[in-house]
Amino acid sequence: MTVTIYDVAREAGVSMATVSRVVNNNPNVKPQTRKKVFEAIERLGYRPNAVARGLASKKTTTVGVVIPDISNAIFAEVARGIEDIANMYHYNIILCNADKKKDKEIRVINTLLEKQVDGLLFMGGAVTDEHLQAFKTANVPIVLCATTDENGSIPSVDIDHESAAFDAVQTLIKQGHRSIAMIGGTLQDPANGYSRFQGYKRALETAGITYDENMVRIGNYRYESGVEAMKYFLELAEKPSAVFSATDEMAIGAIHAIQDAGLKVPEDISVISVDNSRMASMVRPQLTTVAQPMYDIGAVSMRLLTKLMKKESVENPRVVLPHEVITRQSVGNKE
Rank of each mutant, 00 (worst) to 15 (best):
T4I: 13
D7L: 06
E11R: 14
S15I: 13
V22Y: 01
P27N: 13
N28G: 04
N28T: 08
R34G: 05
R34I: 11
K35T: 15
E39V: 15
E39H: 15
R43V: 15
L44S: 15
R47G: 13
K59V: 08
T61I: 03
V65K: 00
V65D: 00
V66W: 07
I70Q: 04
A73D: 13
A76I: 00
G81H: 03
E83N: 11
E83K: 10
D84E: 14
I85L: 07
A86K: 01
M88F: 02
H90M: 06
Y91W: 05
N92V: 00
N97V: 14
K101R: 11
V108S: 11
I109S: 07
K115V: 03
D118A: 01
G119F: 00
F122M: 14
M123T: 12
G124M: 02
G124A: 02
G125L: 05
T128F: 10
E130A: 11
A134S: 05
K136W: 01
K136R: 04
N139P: 03
P141F: 01
A146I: 12
T148P: 03
E150S: 07
N151L: 11
G152S: 07
G152N: 06
P155N: 02
V157I: 10
H161I: 05
H161P: 00
S163M: 11
S163N: 12
S163E: 12
F166I: 02
F166S: 05
T171C: 09
K174I: 01
Q175I: 03
R178K: 11
M182S: 14
Q188I: 15
S195G: 10
I209A: 01
Y211L: 09
Y211I: 02
D212M: 08
D212R: 13
D212G: 04
M215F: 04
V216T: 09
R222N: 14
R222T: 15
S225N: 13
G226K: 03
E228Q: 13
E228T: 05
Y232F: 13
L236V: 07
E238S: 08
P240V: 10
V243D: 01
E249D: 15
M250L: 14
A251V: 08
G253L: 12
G253C: 14
A254N: 10
H256C: 10
I258Y: 07
Q259R: 07
D260K: 06
A261V: 13
K264I: 00
V265F: 12
V265P: 02
E267K: 10
E267V: 04
V271G: 04
S273L: 11
M279A: 11
A280H: 06
S281P: 08
P285N: 05
T289Y: 01
V290F: 01
G298T: 06
A299V: 12
L305P: 01
T306W: 07
L308Y: 04
M309L: 04
E315V: 15
R318M: 12
I326L: 04
Q329N: 09
V331C: 15
N333T: 02
N333M: 08
